[in-house]
Design a binder for these strands. Sequence first.
DNA 1: TTGTAGGCGTTATCAC
DNA 2: GTGATAACGCCTACAA
Lengths: 338, 338
Amino acid sequence: MKRKVNIKDVAARAKVHPSTVSRVMNPETRSMVSERVADRVAQIASEMGYARSPLASGLRTGRTFTIGVIIPDLSNPIFPPIVRGIERTLSAEGYIAILADSDNSQKGERAIFDSMKSRHIDGLILATARLQDPVVMDCIDEQLPLVLVNRTTDTHDVTEVINNDELGIQMAITHLVELGHTQIAFLGGPQNTSTGRDRYQAFLEIARTGQFQLDPELCVNCAAFTEAAGHIGMLGILAQNKPFSAVVAANDLLALGCYDALDEHDLSCPGDVSVTGFNDMPYADRLSPPLTSVHIPLDELGVQAANLLLAEIRDYHVPRVTKRLDPKLVVRGSTAAA
Amino acid sequence: MKRKVNIKDVAARAKVHPSTVSRVMNPETRSMVSERVADRVAQIASEMGYARSPLASGLRTGRTFTIGVIIPDLSNPIFPPIVRGIERTLSAEGYIAILADSDNSQKGERAIFDSMKSRHIDGLILATARLQDPVVMDCIDEQLPLVLVNRTTDTHDVTEVINNDELGIQMAITHLVELGHTQIAFLGGPQNTSTGRDRYQAFLEIARTGQFQLDPELCVNCAAFTEAAGHIGMLGILAQNKPFSAVVAANDLLALGCYDALDEHDLSCPGDVSVTGFNDMPYADRLSPPLTSVHIPLDELGVQAANLLLAEIRDYHVPRVTKRLDPKLVVRGSTAAA
DNA sequence: TTGTAGGCGTTATCAC
DNA sequence: GTGATAACGCCTACAA
């Protein structure tokens, strides 16, 4: 590999001291140098193809312009758009993202976090938060800028960009009730995540207002937000042999697992059972049947998370905020009149 | 932020010289230290929560255990599985991935590459290769380990993990011919990518063997591998007002655009027109209609790319290889007898 | 406004 | 087998 030109090379050619070159190349200190010298140095630097080494400056300053991003499962289609929003926003500000997929494992998450810490990331975006999350606590302890996206925690004073889950479940139920459904099942997610818990609680809460008949045995919380878990969960509901005409799923992948289970029982959707999803994942409109789902602005989630993180990096003492984006219901072919 | 413990702190506590600690903590040099001392130092280091700083050692050694990964479009569902395979393989070996989405732009690609270079990546995995690709040339010039995935270039002597496109197109056509189709249209991709060109050439080549009637006006190459481009391309084919009963699309997203165009012309799939895709993207089986597609082992593509890159990093002079994985056809509901 | 000098944490290369 | 020293490339008090 060719040797890269460094600050000294540029200094020698420009006949100034390396520190002057350093000041010129750093936007934050450029104003300390007279414009004439600055222009000349910048010119020469660019001619020589000089590029600052973030490694060296990071070692000196403790800032690396690198952000960690931890995702629970990149094969869940809701995450690529979020990652994209994050990545686009960060790179526009000169930051890069190091991405890791924890594969839904707490242990993996911890290992990834340690590895990222050792690499001196300037901040972390976490899409894997559990209600009790050691990684979140660590970040707070160590004063590492942190933003949660999609999921939140029980720990307070953390910046987060999440969805209004109560509202989303409300919309799904209202839609089904308007279609005449009175017996509605619920296919929930893991109860150690905020999305799992909050959507379940919202379902129970709304049931109490008497809009439909709640049967606790028709409520099953799955072990993971995956098709396989949804499939198993739905088989559990069907095994009750109780009447119901609609299912509210806490996530689109669960809804897909639900499709499979209905299929196996020769039940048609929406003919026999209406199904609503949650997240409106990419291609939800092209599924068979097209999935009625609660739409979340995924890219926007990523963009806002990145921006909030950048603000926190620039000044660690900015107030912690919770951005709760409002979803909207997208009605498609998986729901029909009772 | 708390100060991290460094090599000197450990040395002081263990009453050895910092260089001894360094040797102990580095797997490659640990054998230089007597076992007794090594064990004691390792013990103390772990008690103190010491972690090597890849920044500092990277500065000294020029190796950062960081790999760049450039993807053309993360919202194309074939890439998340590839990225996952890459990421899993790299992290098992202590490497991390910095991921960037070039958004299909050559300019973006260049900027990303420069930024990654300045961060001293140890190697690069490129999923964005064009037939003439300046980034590829640069890597060779600078002897930066490089592996292409999914797409290849006209530049020789580059390690790559790609699909057998000829075979894939062959399979799609054979399937359609067996169903009795004789007039087959082709919806291709950008001709400055290997996947675009090779799939198109394969289609033409197989036509020459006389298995079906080739009408050049029924062959359209789209500007990008996206649904929107496929939609436009397919409208172009339909505008010819020529008879055909099947379409071979060079990629699943093009096939989806094709679905839309057929819909607008009140043509049913597979009733009026059969459609085949390419890649077998996640959820292709759940589309409406389920898409017959040429299946590629996406995760495997990523795993192999990562492994080949690691080999090249360990010894830059390993021979460059081309891994061409064989696809298989997955027949679903989008194709039917003519 | 510009130069000087020391250090960020690690490791390669000597010397003992 | 272990210790000493310098250097990786950059930044920042401080001095001039």
